[in-house]
Amino acid sequence: MPTLTLYDAVGAALTEEMRRDSSVIAFGEGIATKRHELVDEFGGLRIRNTPLAEGIIAGTAVGAAATGLRPVVDLLFAPFLCYAMDELVNSAGKLRYLSGGQFSFPLVTLAMTGAGWGVGAQHNHNVEAWFVHSPGLKVVMPSTPADAKALLKSAIRDDNPVLFFLDIGLLYQPGEVPADEQTLPLGRATVLREGHDVTLVSYGKTVQHCQQAAETLADHGIAAEVIDLRSLKPLDEAAILTSVGKTGRLVVVHEANRLCGIGAEIAALVAEQAFASLKAPIIRLGGPDAPVAASYPLEQASVPQASAIAAAAARLCAAQPA
């Protein structure tokens, strides 16, 4: 199986989808410069650089998507999405509904986020929950190159606007990627490790931290189940509920701020629908209510690490069932 980085897996997905469907185009901040091999294959009309103007990039994608093209736009860093909020939230997310279903918006927005490069809070802000909270949008954040390729292919084929977040800390990690043109449905989580004592639910780089924590827990006789959500909307509620039904304990982990993050939604989901299964309180581990600093130790401290995840899970397993 070939080995690709997540960055190259994105390029591979784009290449395959652009070969498959001539209505797929890509434009954004430096995409034609950084992915010049796509320009060589598809020409400068289908792969374009743009001004550094996120609002008009996103707006152009929305207008093009509604009228026959399938644009993929690269807005670089997630905090820059603030400049594109109107186009993504008010237009892409709402105009299908407000028009009585006259339009659809098959577009993908790529944005990088997360700790890893020490770029500080104006380039690193995990804002994915904002878009989960906005109707009409789908949200994906893969943790491996293979998932990134297969999910991006599905996102490009999806008739809805998809926010596709790339974790900076994972971008240049290599991983095996199937050579065939495999796709993965959006909204399906994956169980990376089975266990019956505690469920660790995560997405993005903290999936790896959960896997490391599960190793540590195994050394202490605790069998942790690790779930990678991969998509945040649609959310694979069944995968979460099934696992908690088995383990009775849940730790939700993400790099994004804990306050009103995805973890809060998942905790509420489990409290509402699987309360009787719970043997212990739910724990959420997430970033603090603070902008992310550039300084390496502070940046790392904003991310739930394996040791904290293992400690939280062990605490739950030590608690006596009510």
Partner: peptide
């Protein structure tokens, strides 16, 4: 904001 994308579709298609 949306007009350039609609015009891009007209042109490219």
């Amino acid at each position: 904001s949306l007009a350039p994308g609609v015009a891009l579709s007209q042109t490219m298609l």
